[in-house]
Design a protein around this nucleic acid. Structure first.
Length: 128
DNA sequence: AAGCACTTTCTTAAAATAGTGG
DNA sequence: CCACTATTTTAAGAAAGTGCTT
């Protein structure tokens, strides 16, 4: 016999546990709404949400990567894998591990990411 | 096996939305 | 249009379940 939904203040949840559960539930609802937006309007979408523990959750339609690729302006002829969401995810995760990762490795990962972003941004600026 | 980081299930009320009539 | 109500959807609380790493 649950106590049912209660009214709560719109502020940071008090405990880590509350934050985790609320994150899980509300992310689910948010991603569902975004699916509906795509379904009803054809809008291409991409969203990233970092969990309280720092893990990135992505969602997008027709796919996260294709929408991100479109946003950043990559060329169609590039053989870019639209379904490989792990590509962006792993890059995102790489930035999160500052304190736990080997500094040299992190440095090179960040450098790679910067290079990739630089290439993509300049390509976008050239073509649009 | 234990611990972590979520995820889900259930009950129930809050909030959002659709429908109706002025 | 706005006010009111009926219906649907969302999510809080509590607790249990899942999958992965150590």
């Amino acid at each position: 016999m649950g106590t049912g939904k209660k009214k709560i203040e719109l502020k940071m949840r008090e405990t880590e546990e509350q934050r985790m559960v609320t994150f899980s539930k509300r992310r689910k609802g948010l991603f569902k709404k975004i699916s509906e937006l795509h379904c009803m309007t054809g809008a291409e979408t991409a969203i990233i949400a970092f969990s309280p523990a720092g893990k990135p959750y992505t969602h997008g339609e027709p796919s996260f990567n294709s929408t991100m690729g479109r946003f950043i302006g990559y060329n169609e002829e590039d053989d870019y894998d639209n379904d490989d969401t792990d590509t962006f995810k792993s890059l995102l995760e790489a930035i999160q591990v500052d304190d736990y990762w080997d500094p040299d490795e992190l440095g090179s990962l960040k450098q790679k990411l910067k290079e990739i972003c630089g290439i993509l941004v300049s390509r976008r600026d050239d073509n649009v």
